[in-house]
Amino acid sequence: TLFEALYDYEARTEDDLSFHKGEKFQILNSSEGDWWEVRSLTTGETGYIPSPYLA
């Protein structure tokens, strides 16, 4: 399933992933509550992002 970022986000820890509004992601793991592990389709990087920032 693909999701798109609604807002920009700046990583706060080394496990987080910074991203920009409009960036698209593949969800790798959504079992961690509000923090999902994703792969950016723009950069190929993986990390955790806050799920409320996605649509």
Rank of each mutant, 00 (worst) to 15 (best):
Leu2Met: 10
Glu4Gly: 10
Glu4Arg: 01
Glu4Thr: 14
Ala5Gly: 02
Ala5Ser: 05
Leu6His: 05
Leu6Arg: 06
Tyr7Ser: 06
Tyr7Asn: 06
Tyr7Lys: 05
Tyr7Leu: 08
Asp8Ile: 02
Asp8Ala: 05
Tyr9Asp: 03
Tyr9Ala: 01
Glu10Asp: 14
Glu10Gln: 12
Glu10Cys: 12
Glu10Gly: 02
Ala11Pro: 04
Ala11Asp: 02
Arg12Leu: 10
Thr13Lys: 13
Glu14Asn: 13
Glu14Met: 07
Asp15Ser: 14
Asp15Gln: 14
Asp16Phe: 14
Asp16Gln: 15
Asp16Glu: 15
Leu17Ile: 12
Ser18Met: 04
Ser18Lys: 07
Ser18Asp: 03
Phe19Gln: 01
Phe19Arg: 00
Phe19Tyr: 07
Phe19Met: 09
Phe19Trp: 02
His20Pro: 03
Lys21Ala: 09
Lys21Thr: 09
Lys21Arg: 09
Gly22Ala: 01
Glu23Ser: 02
Glu23Gly: 15
Glu23Phe: 03
Glu23Cys: 04
Lys24Trp: 14
Lys24Gly: 02
Lys24Ile: 14
Lys24His: 07
Phe25Met: 03
Phe25Val: 01
Phe25Tyr: 13
Phe25Asn: 00
Phe25Cys: 01
Gln26Ala: 07
Gln26Trp: 14
Gln26His: 08
Gln26Ile: 15
Ile27Ala: 02
Ile27Tyr: 04
Leu28Val: 07
Leu28Glu: 01
Leu28Trp: 01
Asn29Glu: 05
Ser31Gly: 10
Ser31Phe: 08
Glu32Ala: 13
Glu32Trp: 11
Glu32Pro: 08
Glu32Thr: 12
Gly33Met: 08
Gly33Tyr: 09
Gly33Arg: 12
Trp35Ile: 09
Trp36Ala: 00
Trp36Asn: 00
Trp36Tyr: 04
Trp36Met: 08
Glu37Val: 09
Val38Leu: 02
Arg39Val: 12
Ser40Trp: 04
Ser40Arg: 13
Ser40Met: 04
Ser40His: 07
Leu41Thr: 08
Thr42Trp: 10
Thr42Gln: 10
Thr42Phe: 07
Thr42Arg: 13
Thr42Tyr: 08
Thr43Pro: 01
Thr43Lys: 01
Thr43Val: 01
Thr43Asp: 01
Thr43Arg: 01
Glu45Leu: 14
Glu45Thr: 13
Thr46Ala: 05
Thr46Ile: 12
Thr46Lys: 06
Gly47His: 07
Gly47Lys: 06
Gly47Ala: 03
Tyr48Gly: 01
Tyr48Ile: 09
Tyr48Phe: 12
Tyr48Glu: 04
Tyr48Leu: 12
Ile49Val: 15
Ile49Glu: 00
Pro50Thr: 03
Pro50Met: 13
Pro50Phe: 15
Pro50Leu: 11
Pro50Cys: 12
Pro52Glu: 15
Tyr53Val: 05
Tyr53His: 10
Tyr53Ala: 14
Leu54Ile: 08
Leu54Gly: 06
Leu54Asn: 09
Ala55Phe: 10
Ala55Val: 14
Ala55Gly: 10
Ala55Glu: 10
